[in-house]
């Protein structure tokens, strides 16, 4: 049933879409009526719930479907008090809950259905599927895959940064959840331990821990979550903090000390002094920020090996979102 696509051209996106089942997209516990309910009842249920069709069930199994078109017909024939069994469509096409969603999409296209009752293997009604449900499920899955792809890319960049230079580097990686302040500091703590283990000078450990903590808190407070990673070797630490939006509209402005978009709640917790990004920059030998609406990526390197502090812009506000 899969569309004709060259198998070699399959991407994780295709795979994720084909893995979607009808039950992943359907609306569970749909509104139903019995065959004895009146068409007037069907009309009011449709109006109250803003729906355009109702499955009719007997003993949990779908036996018909009443659409808004059927209600109009009953009104035209002045028969709105009749039971729905008189006006419902009895030729009910259903779809199994464990079928691939793509198969249901084909049914929608082929027969022009607006909705499909979903049944389990015993034939009991377990949900209803509309084209809106399909769109929503596909969009949600695509979004999840896009996030995974971003994380894969972040890891690839991290590895590429050190390719050929490092053996035996430590990788510290923490998934950061938006607004989960209780976990703030987890990454910074792990970074600190990794650096101390290598006997790095305490001043550099402190700089890295502060940069790591600020980056971590920024993801928690100002994004929809993300991934923060560090690669630690005997010469330097590189931290990449990547979130999933909403980006920073004006990076030079955000780099100014005291500039903050934090709300009152965030401030009451002691954050929002507008020092986060300037602090990260101050602690880093190399600092870059890329902040489109799809998500912000901050890269920081602190060198404690033979190479000391590198050149960095005199004025952090001059940063234009390109690697320094």
């Amino acid at each position: 049933m899969r569309p004709r696509i060259d198998p070699a051209a399959y991407t994780p996106f295709h795979e994720a879409l084909y893995d979607l089942r009808v039950r992943d997209a359907m609306t569970e516990n749909p509104i139903t009526l019995s065959t004895e309910a009146t068409m007037r009842k069907a009309q009011s249920v449709m109006r109250e719930n803003r729906i355009s069709g109702i499955p009719i069930v007997e003993n949990g199994k779908p036996v018909g479907i009443v659409s808004i078109q059927d209600v109009i017909e009953a009104l035209v024939w002045n028969d709105i008090c009749a039971p729905v069994r008189k006006w419902m469509s009895c030729q009910v096409s259903t779809v199994l809950d464990n079928l691939p969603l793509i198969q249901a999409v084909n049914d929608f296209q082929k027969h022009g259905y607006g909705r499909l009752p979903v049944v389990n293997e015993q034939g009991d009604l377990v949900g209803i599927l509309t084209s809106g449900d399909v769109t929503q499920a596909v969009m949600f899955r695509l979004n999840e895959e896009a996030k995974k792809a971003e994380q894969r890319e972040a890891r690839r960049v991290l590895s590429a940064l050190h390719e050929g230079q490092v053996t035996g580097a430590d990788i510290v990686q923490v998934q950061v959840t938006a607004m989960d302040l209780d976990s703030a500091g987890t990454f910074a703590n792990q970074v600190k331990k990794a650096l101390k283990k290598r006997g790095v000078d305490p001043d550099f450990v402190r700089r890295a821990a502060i940069a790591a903590y600020e980056a971590e808190v920024n993801i928690i407070l100002h994004s929809m979550g993300g991934l923060i990673e560090a690669m630690v070797d005997d010469n330097q630490i590189t931290i990449i903090a990547q979130d999933t939006g909403p980006g920073i509209p004006n990076v030079p402005e955000a780099m100014k000390e005291g500039y903050s978009t934090a709300n009152e709640v965030v401030r009451s917790l002691g954050f929002g002094a507008g020092m986060g990004l300037p602090n990260m920059h101050r602690c880093s030998d190399e600092f870059s920020i890329d902040a489109p609406a799809s998500g912000t990526t901050v890269r920081m390197t602190i060198r404690y090996g033979k190479t000391a502090v590198a050149d960095k812009p005199a004025n952090p506000a001059e940063l234009q979102g390109v690697p320094s």
């Binding site: 302040l181 703030a184 500091g185 910074a188 703590n189 450990v205 821990a209 903590y213 954050f271």
Partner: peptide, 17 residues
């Protein structure tokens, strides 16, 4: 010295030694 009481004060103390 601070008026803040959340556990984040401790995390910050850790980060700054």
């Amino acid at each position: 010295l601070t008026g803040l009481v959340t556990s984040q004060v401790v995390r910050v103390a850790e980060a700054t030694d």
